[in-house]
Simulated scan of single mutants.
Amino acid sequence: MADGRARALWERYEPVHDLVYFAPEAHRAADALGLRGFWMGYFALRAAPLGAVSPSVVTSCFHVFHPSRVARALPDAWAYAAPADVLAARLEAMDAALTRVAGADAVGSAAFAQAADLAWEAAAAADTTGRVLAAANQALGRPERPAARLWQAVTTLREHRGDSHVAVLVGLGLGPVEAMVLKAAAGESDGAFLRETRKWPARDWAAAEERLRADGRLAADGSLTPAGAALRARTEALTDAAAERPWTALGAERTERLAALLEPLAHAVRESGLLPAANPVGLTRRTLPVGR
C-alpha cells in the first residue's frame, strides 16, 4: 500500500500484542499453569493456537529461533498445561493487562469497543493462505469482553504480518540468522541481544555475516552496504504489501479510524516501561501517516 497504511497500523498494534510477552499478568498466568521459566511460557503462550505441536513445527513457524531453544520448552510445556488451558489463561491475562495499562475507564468506553470491533473485522478479513500462525489465531472464538477481543484481533493481525514476513524471507533466500544480521545492521535491534535470546552460536552468526559480506550486502565494519540496504528495504516493502488485505477490506476511512483509536493504547503500552529497549521485532517509533 503506497501510503504506508499497513506499516502504520503495525506500529500501532504491535505494542498491544507484545503485552503477552512482557506483562506481569502473562508471567503469572504461565506460572499458574506450571510452565517453567520465561521461554517455556513464551513458546506455550504463542504456540497454543496450533495445538500440542512438536518443537520442529514451532521452530519452522517462528523462524528465527535455534531448534535447541524451542526444544528446551516443547513438548514439555504440553505435559504441564493443555493448549486449551493455555489459550484460556492467556486471554484472561491479556484482558487484565490491557485493562490495567489502558485504564478501566478507557476499556469500558464506546470508543474502545469500536476499536475492538474494527480490529476483529480486519483480522477476519486477513487471507491466511500459507500463514499458519495467523490461521490458527483467526480460527479462535470471538471474545465477549472488548479488551480480550481487541488483543486477540491484533494478535491475529500481527501473526498474519509475521507469517508474511517469513514467506518473504524464504522467497529471498534469507535464513534466520542472515535475516537477524540484516536487522541488526540496519539499526533496528541489537545483534548480541538477538543472537543470545534466539540461542544461535557465535560461529553461526559469524558465518552468516561472512556470507552477507561475500554477497556484497554487509560492509567490513558490520554496516549495510547500499545493496544490503536495498535488500532490507525490499524485504520490508514486500512484507507491507503482503499485509495489505485486512486494510483494503476494512476500507480507508475505517482503517484510519482504527489507527486513531489504537494510537493512545500503543502509547500507553510504550510508556508503561514493560517493553524492553532492545525490542526484538525492531519496532521503532515513527510518525507515519495513515491517510494520504
Results as ranks from 00 to 15, higher is better:
43 F>C: 01
43 F>E: 06
45 L>V: 13
45 L>Q: 14
45 L>P: 00
46 R>A: 06
46 R>C: 09
47 A>C: 07
50 L>E: 11
50 L>H: 07
51 G>D: 01
51 G>L: 08
52 A>T: 02
52 A>K: 02
53 V>H: 00
54 S>V: 03
54 S>E: 14
55 P>V: 06
55 P>H: 04
56 S>F: 01
56 S>E: 15
57 V>C: 00
57 V>H: 00
58 V>R: 05
59 T>N: 11
60 S>W: 03
61 C>M: 09
63 H>A: 11
65 F>L: 01
66 H>I: 00
67 P>T: 02
67 P>N: 08
69 R>V: 02
69 R>G: 00
69 R>A: 15
71 A>W: 05
72 R>T: 03
73 A>C: 03
73 A>E: 07
74 L>S: 12
74 L>R: 06
75 P>N: 03
75 P>S: 11
76 D>K: 11
76 D>C: 00
77 A>I: 00
78 W>I: 05
78 W>K: 01
78 W>R: 11
79 A>M: 06
80 Y>L: 14
81 A>C: 06
81 A>K: 08
81 A>G: 09
83 P>H: 05
85 D>W: 02
87 L>N: 01
88 A>C: 01
91 L>Q: 10
92 E>A: 14
94 M>W: 04
95 D>C: 11
95 D>F: 00
97 A>P: 11
97 A>K: 12
99 T>H: 14
99 T>N: 13
99 T>F: 10
101 V>K: 09
103 G>V: 09
104 A>K: 14
105 D>Q: 14
105 D>Y: 03
107 V>Q: 07
110 A>Q: 05
113 A>C: 10
114 Q>T: 15
114 Q>D: 14
115 A>Y: 12
116 A>L: 07
117 D>Q: 13
118 L>N: 02
119 A>W: 02
119 A>N: 02
120 W>A: 15
121 E>Q: 13
